[in-house]
Design a binder for these strands. Structure first.
Lengths: 256, 256
DNA sequence: AAATTTTATGCATGATTTCGCCCGATTTGA
DNA sequence: TCAAATCGGGCGAAATCATGCATAAAATTT
């Protein structure tokens, strides 16, 4: 498939967020264009402050470190849009479980200083982000911290979560498929998500475009369990329609 | 994996922050490049003020400032020094509870990438810092996150902590007094500390100078419970003596 | 619809960077 | 003082880069 320049750069930006670095040669073969084109892309992106140009490729702007911390500290932009839209569904006084994931971290970041909420989470990054929000009470669910997922998992986590009935769960979807529902790649992570979704009075899923039509081994919950879907403003129409058809409200980000 | 020059230098910088010094030979074999390349890196970094070049390798900029006068001006540098000293007491395989507090956070930051440890903590910041340490298993104790202490507190925290017997507890001291022992300003925080200290096989306290002779309302543990004290290079002699007299080993930071 | 401008891309070329190696100079420790 | 380790600079090969130019596609104007 042939990509437009902007699409290519956007994908490079995503890759940077995920891997922390890219090599000019790799990108060239991956996108099927010449290295010169890639170099031009990288130069442009660097000029726009979207990456740091180095000999041989480019590095993510914020941190040139491990993919995980990079993934967590990066990723704003499209996700911030999504986050603002998601927050519009929150009501003061709610108790909300926020699952791990970079999109959900963006939601935490976007929470206003003074919103009165109780947030429950098993992700240290989300807890830390919310620490300076005066209005937010934070409850952390402990457990064994998985460095890949960036959240506490395991028996203790499940146990602590079992005695909680949040008004809403903001669930992190590894993959969202119209027929299968929400799936996750890691068993233990899926277990947590499943319990949270089952206990919660409502379930919100905020997903970026690349999550659509992906499915992973572990089913978290069927699509009928989803109370509310938040998508990007250029989310594929056919995907969102199949959810709307089920009576699930779909909120598009960035639309006035 | 092959690294780009900038990445290599960035990692060297990280190592410097963690160990305080690096050797050209070690780096060469570690990164799989020639010593000449490493020397060029170090020279460049030194030119940029990111390290101090010395015969055989390089030193962190913090450690370079002469013996102890000018260097110990910045609190973070003093703590990094303290941290390196504290870490020398850790042994591979240990299970260590690390309490909240900025000094303890510095200890977490200073932990080497590859040290094999199980770290238990109720402070999200410490958990996040350790997330990229491959050798460290992290267990988070959940609870209600206190935004002032920066740690999870409360009944659930106490409960989860009760079933843990760490090899060592690195306790955060709000105040350390030779006669009273360790005290804390917040009741709930003190409760956690007290339980951790009581359950643990040994207790380390790493304290900066300003902690001495301070005491707060809530007693955490008497001085006799302390197994090991880590203090700054220029800690007041009379304070340390009263602990040494009890048979408590006192480690001074920044001494070869 | 045709003509014109703009843009994206690939290729060639000469410049630049990286890096291993070598050699003579310098530092270290005994 | 001496020997060994370390150092800095210079050299060359290979990789990477920036630039100019030509071509083709896309967008714009006529």
């Amino acid at each position: 498939m042939e990509l437009l320049q902007k699409e290519r750069q956007s994908q490079i930006f995503d890759l940077l967020g995920r891997k922390g670095r890219v090599l000019a040669g790799d990108l060239a073969s991956q996108f099927g264009v010449s290295e010169d084109t890639i170099r031009r892309d990288l130069r442009e992106m660097a000029a726009a402050g979207r990456c740091e140009r180095v000999y041989g490729g480019a590095l993510a702007v914020t941190t040139l470190r491990q993919p995980l911390s990079a993934r967590l500290t990066l990723a704003t932009e499209r996700k911030a849009d999504l986050a603002r839209c998601a927050i519009a569904c929150f009501r003061p006084g709610m108790t909300i479980f926020i699952d791990a994931g970079s999109t959900n971290l963006a939601i935490a970041r976007a929470l206003p200083e003074d919103m009165s909420l109780t947030v429950v989470t098993n992700a240290p990054a989300i807890a830390m982000t919310l620490m300076d929000r005066q209005g937010v009470d934070i409850i952390m669910i402990g457990g064994s911290l998985d460095r890949h997922v960036g959240a506490n998992l395991g028996a203790r986590t499940l146990d602590a979560l079992a005695s909680l009935i949040p008004d809403m769960t903001v669930i992190g979807a590894c993959g969202l498929d119209p027929s299968v529902g929400i799936t996750a790649s890691l068993f233990e992570d899926a277990e947590i998500k499943r319990l949270a979704a089952a206990n919660s009075r409502s379930v919100m899923a905020a997903v970026t475009n690349e999550k659509f039509s992906l499915h992973y081994p572990h089913v978290v919950c069927g699509r009928e369990k989803i109370s509310c879907l938040v998508v990007e403003n250029d989310a594929p129409e056919d995907m969102t329609r199949s959810f709307s058809a089920l009576g699930i409200p779909v909120h598009r980000a960035g639309q006035a």
